[in-house]
């Protein structure tokens, strides 16, 4: 089913090859929006000012349309893994044996921006995306780059989301303090 839908999106995209940016973005988002469930492995590299070397973590990213996002890191050597779940605007962070940290994203817009960008892309929610970010698109449907600049100043200066057709491949986050993160998303793990 997903395959057929992806083909359909491709056909649609090819037929309107010279469409304006907005239309192209909508095409990408429509494609993404057709995918109801994503489960893929990721590698995250964080480049922090205070560190001489990047930090690397790996794990699984899961998405269920329209608003459940989960990022579960693999267990580290010391057994400490973490799982972060965002559902219906509430973020739950589980680490080790302690009680989970629960945050309402409305209350923490700086985290909200980080989460909402990824969620809105995966859900194909153009309205939410344009409300929170200035959106720039480059490339075409087979390989696109969307740069999101938050409308409200916070932790994040900009995010760049790369993708191919109805799949996200890489998310780069540039923070205002100079720290940076790269999240590379693999093929669907299922």
């Amino acid at each position: 089913m997903r395959f057929i839908l992806a083909c359909l999106v491709m056909l649609l995209a090819i037929s309107g090859a010279q469409a304006a940016d907005a239309t192209a973005l909508d095409a990408i988002l429509t494609g993404l929006g057709q995918v109801r469930h994503v489960e893929a492995r990721y590698v995250e590299r964080r480049f922090l000012r205070v560190l001489r070397v990047p930090l690397e973590t790996r794990g699984v990213l899961r998405f269920d349309a329209p608003d459940r996002l989960e990022k579960a890191s693999d267990l580290a050597a010391d057994g400490a893994g973490e799982r972060i779940v965002v559902a219906a605007g509430v973020l739950t962070l589980e680490r080790g044996a302690g009680p989970p940290v629960v945050l309402a994203l409305r209350e923490h817009p700086e985290i909200g921006v980080l989460v909402e960008s990824v969620r809105a892309m995966l859900a194909g929610d153009g309205g939410a995306l344009r409300r929170d970010f200035a959106v720039d698109l480059a490339g075409d449907l087979t390989g696109w780059q969307v740069v999101l600049t938050p409308r409200v100043k916070g932790l994040v200066r900009w995010l760049r989301v790369d993708g191919a057709a109805a799949r996200l491949t890489r998310i780069e986050t540039q923070e205002n303090d100079g720290d940076r993160a790269e999240l590379t998303i693999g093929e669907d793990a299922r």
């Binding site: 922090l48 205070v50 930090l55 990022k71 890191s73 972060i84």
Partner: peptide, 18 residues
């Protein structure tokens, strides 16, 4: 701290780390 920086809560730790 290093482990926390790599985690999702890293941005919280970062603010008071120094």
């Amino acid at each position: 701290d290093l482990a926390a920086l790599g985690s999702a809560a890293g941005f919280l730790v970062k603010q008071t780390l120094d």
